[in-house]
Design a protein around this nucleic acid. Structure first.
Lengths: 145, 145
DNA sequence: CTCGATATGACATCATTGTTGTCATGACGG
DNA sequence: CCGTCATGACAACAATGATGTCATATCGAG
């Protein structure tokens, strides 16, 4: 055996950092023309996926501090990509939601990304991709213990 | 079907960012007492794994610019964890190698990390972890096209 | 209902780190 | 030998995650 279970999980984790860096480079290049950053794009994605959320709610979904998300939301609002909406559950903490322009921008960006990903990792089967997703979710769940 | 192949690969990629962030937080907390950063630790790992390398060589392995690596190497040298070694293949570009202190530090840190990882993602089988590794490597190989 | 604890927005600061640029010099191939 | 490239050294910048503070709104306990 080449190593214990921990060593094999370590190998998995070691692949993640360059993957995040490289995909961020690709995504950033695609976003440059639109004048938004990867951080701002991450906020757009959460809003597109989970619907209107408060700033702390977005931060929780992304495992980030609310202060940093506040910056991104402010920047996005200044560009007219998100807007505030009254929150029925909390009068002070408004819900942030995508504007039409924000929805259109994210949809376009996202479609482009999906098209690119269709042709990638051609040597991996659907079962292997599903296993990778399961393992990564398990790691995300446990690593913050 | 819930989405095409690209959508499933996208789901995999989406897990990687928080995973990198959270594991970096854990690693950083463990390194704080030793006074080194995650970037410096990454350099130590490359040197421990691949043996003495030049600064551009380390940068290539980590997919980073040589300038940033130079900083980490300088910091590590100032702490006595790495040292220069004459390069038989290139008189000017010296090889960086771990000192005894550097080797001891990385071994200790790495052993601690492996011990933690042994108990993680208990619901994932060895075959699933192997599949995850294969998929991540394929993504790393193709994403920078 | 009152009060204390907590959440939130706003604002500010800092550290890490990836990126980019420059320059002099050595290394290497044509 | 000369032009091109690689390398080290140095510098500056941008994005972003982390941290702290403060006033105020919100909420739950008593």
């Amino acid at each position: 055996m080449t190593g214990g279970r921990g060593a094999r999980i370590y190998d998995v984790l070691r692949e993640t950092r360059p993957l995040v860096l490289n995909s961020a480079r690709v995504v950033e290049a695609a976003l440059r023309d639109d004048g938004i950053s990867v951080g701002m794009r991450a906020v757009l994605e959460v809003l597109a996926t989970a619907g209107p959320l408060t700033v702390p709610g977005i931060a929780h979904r992304l495992d980030l501090a609310r202060q940093g998300i506040q910056r991104h939301v402010d920047d996005l609002a200044a560009r007219g990509l998100v807007t505030a909406q009254t929150n029925p559950a909390h009068r002070r903490s408004v819900l942030v939601r995508l504007t039409e322009a924000g929805t259109a921008l994210f949809d376009r960006v996202h479609d482009d990304e999906l098209a690119r990903l269709d042709t990638i990792a051609a040597d991996c089967g659907d079962d292997e991709i599903a296993a990778a997703l399961k393992v990564l979710r398990a790691l995300n769940r446990d690593v913050r213990r």
